[in-house]
Design a protein around this nucleic acid. Structure first.
Lengths: 194, 194
DNA sequence: GGCACTATATATAATTG
DNA sequence: TCAATTATATATAGTGC
């Protein structure tokens, strides 16, 4: 992907290696997130090296990462003897497992929606950055970037619909100002509870 | 990537979801491996869900996975509060801020151009004043005043270029009448995206 | 060195057998 | 349902500020 086919080997040049690292780790995180949404599975990616100060991790929420890894461990017994695995199997009956899975699914969904709401709050000035928990910052970036893309898309297609309904409709609620014209109706996402 | 753009949402259809899962998890694993080779970093990806019997993990060596995760934990102290964590928070904060600023910039730019378009619409009669939201009137005035200045300038210099191409060119579209002669070609502004 | 852009390689959604 | 193929979307290597 790119001007040239790159051979699969350590990139000697330090600066282009760093560039590559940035681009690729971003892409990897994105794909991990997409995977988890599209197929509703637990997915997690961890990338770190001595060069990079900050490890790239998805999801960025520590709690989520821990949950996914621990769950993976207990499910597939990483580094555990097979006897231990058997114990686990006995301990966790099907119902419990199913319930856990359901819970996890809801939690993932809920988290997504929380991020959406948070992004809206921040963009509309309802809340400020320092009110955001550190754990949520990373995921928040994703949502913001998504929104930016949506905006860019809208901007690109602006000329095609000169009589934009939001823009010209006199009945439209303009209380949210341009926000609405750009984002469409600004609504709070309803958080799923079950 | 594919015949159609797929929207980022749970794939309802079970069979295509499974196909997607297979393809994407494979791709994710590949990219994780490439990342680790190209940049010589520790990288690890874990994907699992109830549907899939076998979790997709890279690297496939359990030992490696354990090493990477443990190393990550001890290096970046998952669930531990330390200076490093603070650093991370600061960095994330900066990233969010940057993203927000970028977003704000785009929004500002977008608004300017919207006003331009609105002004054009009004001057060409495509829309009328009462279709403009009250919130937008103030900004609209600025744009109109700017245009008036430009018009005055053009009028002042009119005599200097008697054979104005727009004015005399028989192939030019004169549908917009004087508008075009004064403003130049009347086009919708192409909105800048970044 | 970082960012925006462009050309190209890759990944993958449909489609077909 | 799968495997191979094809058409397209996306990721990203290089380029020019």
């Amino acid at each position: 992907m790119g001007r040239k086919k790159v051979k699969l080997a350590f990139i000697e040049n330090a600066s282009s290696r760093r560039v590559s690292h940035t681009k690729r780790s971003h892409g990897l995180a994105k794909k991990t997130q997409e995977m988890s949404v599209l197929c509703d599975v637990d997915a997690c990616a961890i990338i770190y090296g001595k060069d990079e100060q900050v490890p790239v991790v998805w999801p960025s929420s520590e709690t989520e990462v821990r949950r996914i890894i621990n769950n993976y461990k207990s499910k597939y017994g990483i580094g555990q003897s097979s006897e231990r695995q058997l114990d686990q199997q006995l301990l966790l009956n099907q119902t419990v497992k199913k319930t856990q899975e359901k819970l996890a699914r809801i939690q993932r969904k809920n988290r997504e929606l929380q991020m959406e709401n948070m992004a809206t709050d921040i963009m509309t000035g309802k809340s400020t950055l320092d009110q955001v928990a550190p754990n949520d910052l990373g995921d928040l970036i994703w949502v913001l970037e998504d929104r930016m893309k949506a905006i860019k898309y809208r901007i690109c297609n602006w000329e095609n619909n000169s009589n934009n309904p939001h823009f010209l409709n006199p009945n439209a609620n303009h209380g949210d100002g341009m926000m609405e014209a750009i984002f469409g109706v600004v609504v709070r996402k309803r958080i799923v509870v079950s």
